[in-house]
């Protein structure tokens, strides 16, 4: 493989595949943080979703029921997270970390308790690939976008939908208002905590979906700590994307591309730079973004602050 062959269809497919779970979770995170809840628990929600997807898919012999169960499990973790952070106004980062530790322990334990050393069943159904007629036949782009896992297309659809929802609908306006100035929203007759709960719940659903993609989209198996920090990377993508759906998607795509490049570069002759450096680029960019060097990011004004009426 030489330099020009690096950017082949395989690279773009890998990039899109790597970007999908990041983008799904980052979109969810955008909803949560736009309402003012810092959601570091996406990692745990994702991991739970990944495990439950395999569990349900293998037990019920249906990848779609696996997906549905994964989404529900992500939402269940979100309810737990919301209960601590919104109902009891505990520190969002602390509760988020607790959820992540809980998810890691719980999935690891259940994996061992249910499947023992043999791992998840090899006949676990995985989510189907979808072929887009017409697009698949097109040269170049067809090889990348013509045929992919169902959730890749779901993700691509959710990007404009999320944007429309947040920035064009009354409910989106209210959710953003809650994240910017909860007192103002409250005095305008908006139920702050209900909308925050909704934001966290959407985040849980999309994180669960992202987890399902990792376990029964790309593969049909679950192993210990399978998400491997993707929840945090999704959080970084959301921040790099400036708390906007389209931005979050583009940032996730960039992270996915870096990941794909790092894989492809290993096969490149005469290339002596460690792949770790390539993998590092998106994170370095995120740090620079947060420091306001690459671009200015502005979080919602009340992001991370529990709402106490009357203050």
């Amino acid at each position: 493989m030489n330099g020009s062959e690096i950017f082949n269809a395989q690279l773009w497919m890998t990039a899109l595949s790597s970007a999908t779970p990041l983008a799904l979770a980052a979109l969810g995170g955008t909803f949560s943080e736009r309402t003012g809840v810092v959601n570091i628990a996406m990692e745990g929600m994702m991991l739970t979703g990944a495990f439950v997807a395999v569990l349900a898919s293998a037990t019920l012999h249906s990848a779609f029921l696996g997906l549905a169960a994964a989404i529900l499990s992500g939402m269940l973790m979100a309810v737990l997270f919301a209960w601590g952070t919104i109902r009891y106004k505990a520190d969002q980062v602390v509760v988020g970390m607790a959820i992540n530790v809980l998810a890691a322990g719980l999935t690891g334990y259940l994996l061992n308790a249910i499947y023992g050393f043999t791992g998840t069943p090899p006949d676990t159904p995985r989510l189907p690939d979808v072929t887009i007629p017409g697009l698949a036949q097109m040269p170049g782009i067809g090889a990348v976008l013509g045929r992919a896992d169902l959730l890749v297309y779901v993700m691509l659809l959710l990007v404009p939908l999320s944007h429309y929802f947040l920035f064009r609908t009354p409910l989106g306006l209210r959710m953003r208002a809650v994240g910017e100035h909860p007192q103002a929203a409250d005095t305008a007759g908006i139920d702050v905590n209900r909308l925050r709960f909704l934001g966290v719940l959407i985040s849980g659903a999309l994180s669960g979906m992202a987890g399902a993609y990792i376990s029964i989209g790309v593969l049909n198996a679950f192993n210990v700590n399978m998400t491997n920090g993707r929840g945090y990377i999704a959080l970084a993508a959301m921040i790099f994307g400036n708390w906007k759906p389209v931005g979050a998607f583009l940032a996730a795509a960039l992270f996915g591309l870096a990941n794909a490049l790092a894989i492809n570069l290993q096969g490149l002759e005469g290339w002596h730079v460690s792949k770790d450096f390539v993998l590092m680029i998106p994170y370095a960019l995120t740090i620079l973004a947060l420091a306001g060097i690459v671009r200015r990011t502005t979080p919602p004004a009340a992001d991370g602050i529990p709402y106490e009426p009357g203050h």
């Binding site: 009354p170 209210r174 910017e180 103002a184 004004a301």
Partner: peptide, 19 residues
């Protein structure tokens, strides 16, 4: 009780938005 990053109109209709 105003949201600086939103427009005057958005701030005024918030909670009773025309759709």
């Amino acid at each position: 009780m105003l949201i600086p990053v939103m427009t005057v109109a958005e701030n005024i209709v918030l909670g009773r938005e025309p759709a």
